[in-house]
Computed example of a mutant assay.
Amino acid sequence: MTTRMTYLPQHPSLQGLVDAIYVYRCDQPFRQRWAGALLPQLTWRIQGAFAWRAHGGEAQPIGRGAILGPASAAMQLETHGPMVVIGLGLFPEGWAALLPMAAGTMVDRVAALHDVWGDDADLPLAGSAADDDATLAGRIDALLCKRLRDALPVDPRIATITAWANGKDHDIDALAASLQVSRRHLDRITTAACGLPPSVLANKQKIMRMAAALAIGMDNRRAVWTEEFADQAHFNRNFKRFIGVSPTRFLQADDVLVRDVMQARFAIASHHPLGLATDAAVPV
């Protein structure tokens, strides 16, 4: 029995809006794995069934075409195979351009994509599990390029916020001043665009960068928790919150999908600040 995740690059016009397109195939009857607190997702289920479970909550079944909102903590993926799912991660700019609701209204939630895009949402479902990965991904690419023609305007402040979250200086007052807004208004803007307030978004990004480095064999845990967290216990709590398991288990356990995802996509990772590209994944 096998599980395979394949990543394919998106159309150039979609760069900076969405992450690479993936095809996930699993022929096991049932599997439950930690998916971490990755980007919001658009998914299309070609075969089988799956569900997301938000940090100890009830499993949320995923329809054939679905929106998976921002994760406030690590999610678990439950699959009933054989299954084939195609999808992609949405950067905050992509969410703002392609979806009409604020990301902050969808935290840890699932919604039917058909309710938002109508019949367009079903176009990738014309495929079958027998199609090759490039063909399946190509249907998503074509759909998103079509939707991009009616894209909504994107608040330019979102790019400033995501660059700040990926940086080393997480002075929230300085970020608010650079955007010429109050702290309270900054919280509203950031939560609406990213699903999390600035301080939590910054901690999440630090942990995701650390996990990406660990996934490719670079162990800088001590440098990270001594420089960017109050102490090791604070670092470990945040790591478990956003990844789902401890750093040691992240490296060793078989039920850690997020590690395998990071390894599989690393070579073609986006250079968007939240994309965990090569030059952003390794803490400095």
Rank of each mutant, 00 (worst) to 15 (best):
Y22P: 06
A73K: 05
A215P: 09
I62T: 12
D120V: 09
V261M: 05
A159Q: 14
S72R: 09
D279Q: 05
A74R: 07
I21Y: 13
L125V: 11
G167P: 07
A264E: 07
I46K: 09
G89V: 07
A163W: 09
D19V: 00
L143P: 12
W164L: 00
A230K: 05
E93H: 01
G127R: 13
H80D: 09
Q10I: 11
V258R: 01
T226L: 01
E228L: 04
D27M: 02
V282P: 11
V258P: 00
D141E: 10
P92Y: 09
L42D: 05
V261E: 02
I86K: 00
R188V: 07
V110Y: 03
Q76T: 06
A267K: 04
T105V: 07
V261G: 02
D133N: 12
A233M: 02
R209G: 12
L276I: 13
D108N: 15
L8Q: 02
D27Y: 01
L8S: 06
A193N: 03
R237E: 13
A230N: 04
L88H: 10
A134C: 10
Y7V: 08
Y7F: 11
L68F: 04
L143N: 10
A35T: 01
L125K: 13
L201R: 01
T6W: 07
L152M: 12
W164F: 10
A66E: 10
F30V: 11
A223C: 05
I189G: 10
F229K: 05
K204L: 04
A281F: 05
D133C: 15
T79C: 08
Q232D: 09
L136H: 14
V84C: 06
A215G: 06
P156C: 14
T135I: 12
A137N: 08
R33K: 11
A51L: 14
G217I: 02
T6L: 00
A129N: 12
V107R: 04
R237W: 06
A230F: 09
F30K: 08
L39H: 12
L8C: 05
I46A: 04
F250V: 02
Q47V: 06
F242T: 03
V258S: 00
C194N: 03
M101Q: 13
D115C: 03
V181C: 12
C26N: 15
A176V: 04
V284S: 12
G94D: 07
